[in-house]
Simulated scan of single mutants.
Amino acid sequence: MGEAVLRDIAKNRGLDIHVDSCGTGAYHVGEDPDDRTVAICKKVRYEDASHIAIRLMETLQHGVPISHKARAISESDYKKFTHILAADGSNLRSLERFKPEDATAEVRLWGSYHNDDPIGDPYYGGINGFEKVYQQCVTFSSAFLDEVFGKSSDDKGDL
Rank of each mutant, 00 (worst) to 15 (best):
E31D: 13
T24W: 01
H68W: 13
H18D: 13
L6Q: 02
G89I: 10
N91M: 09
F81I: 07
I17V: 12
T82E: 10
S94W: 01
D116A: 11
L159Q: 08
G30F: 00
Q135N: 10
I9W: 04
E96Q: 11
L15D: 01
F130R: 02
D117G: 10
D121W: 05
K80D: 08
V5Q: 02
G150M: 03
K42T: 15
A4E: 01
Y78H: 04
G25V: 15
I17Y: 02
H114I: 12
V133G: 03
M1P: 07
Y78P: 01
I17N: 00
L95K: 02
H28L: 01
V5H: 01
L159S: 09
P33F: 05
F81W: 07
D102R: 00
H51V: 15
L60H: 05
H83Q: 02
G150A: 07
G126H: 06
E31T: 13
C137K: 04
A86W: 01
V44W: 07
G14S: 03
A105F: 02
A105M: 05
L60D: 01
G89H: 06
R55G: 10
S94T: 09
I17T: 01
W110P: 08
D20W: 10
R71W: 03
C22P: 04
K79L: 15
L109D: 00
V29L: 03
G126Y: 02
I119R: 03
A105L: 02
G125R: 07
S67R: 13
I73V: 14
A143G: 04
L109M: 05
I84T: 03
R93W: 05
F144H: 08
Y134C: 11
T24Y: 01
L95Y: 00
S90V: 12
Y113N: 02
I119V: 14
T24V: 13
A72T: 15
E3K: 09
L15A: 00
D155Y: 15
D146F: 09
P100R: 04
I40C: 06
L15T: 01
G30M: 00
S74A: 15
S142A: 12
Y123C: 10
A53V: 06
D16H: 04
C22V: 11
E75R: 13
G129H: 03
D20S: 11
R13L: 03
M1T: 13
H68V: 13
H62T: 08
L109V: 05
T104F: 04
D121H: 04
E147W: 08
S142V: 15
V19G: 00
V19M: 00
R7Q: 13
C137D: 11
L95W: 00
R97Y: 11
